[in-house]
Amino acid sequence: MSAELATGVFSWLRRLGATVTGTVGKLGYASRFLIMVLVLSPHAFRRLHLTLREIYFAGVLSLVIILMSGLFVGMVLSLQGYEVLSRYGAGEQLGIMVALSLVRELGPVVAGLLFASRAGSAITAEIGLMKTTEQLAAMEMMAVDPVARVVAPRFWGGVISMPLLAALFSAMGIFGAYIVGVRLIGIDAGAFWGQMQAGVDFWPDVTNGIIKSVVFGLAVSIISVFEGYDAKPTAEGVSSATTRTVVISSLAILALDFVMTAFMFRGIGA
C-alpha cells in the first residue's frame, strides 16, 4: 500500500520534473531562436518587400478589428467613467480619465491581445502549415534559410505593426469617448480636451504606452513565429501550436504589462 503510494508520488514527481525541464528547455530554444532571427534579420530588410508584405498581413488586415474595438472600448469607458466621476462632481475630468487609461494601459494591452489572436495565430498557423507541407524543408534543400526567408520578415512585420495598431486603438478610443462624452452626455468640448491636455503628458504617459506596445509587439511576434516553427508537422500539431500562441502571448502581455507598469509609474510621484 505505502509502496504503491510511493510509486505514485515518484511518478508524479518525475512528471513534474519532466514538465519543468521541458518548459525550461523550450524557453532556452526560444531564446536561441530569437537570437537566430535577429542575426538573420538583415535579410528581411534587404528584401524590403518581404517585410512590407508581412506588415500588410499583420497590420493592415488587423486594422478593422483594432479600430472597431478601440471605438467601442472608448465609448464604454466614457459611459462608465462619467457615471462614477459625476458622483463627485468631476464629470469634466472624463477626458483625462479616458485618455490616461487608454494611453497607459488599455491601448497597448487590448491592442496586444487582439493582435495576438488576429495576427499572431495567423502567423503561427501559416508557418506551421509550411512546415507540415515540407515547404520549409524544400527551402532548406534549395539552400535558402527558412528562418531568414520566412520567419524574419514575419517577425519584423509584427514588431513594426504592433505600436502603430496600439496608437490607433488609443486614438480611436479617445474619439469614441469624445462621441459619448461630448456629443451624447453633453460635457463641454473645451473642458474635455483641456483637462486631457493638462493631465496627459507626452513624456512619460504617451511614450511609456508606446514602449509597452513595442515590447508587446516583440513578445507576440517571437512567440508566434517560434510556435509555428516549432509546431509538430501534423494537423493537430499546427492547431495546438496556434492555440498556444494565443494563450502564451496573452499571458506574456499581461505579465509584462504588470512588470513594466511597476517600473514606469513607480517613480512619478516623487
Binding site: L129, E134, Q135, E140, M141, A143
Partner: peptide, 20 residues
C-alpha cells in the same frame, strides 16, 4: 553545405510548393 545544395534539386513527396 549551402553551396552544395544549390546544385541539388529535390522533389518532395507532395510537391511542397510554396502556397503563397
Amino acid at each position: 553545405l549551402y553551396a552544395l545544395r544549390r546544385r541539388f534539386g529535390m522533389l518532395f513527396q507532395f510537391g511542397a510548393l510554396f502556397t503563397d
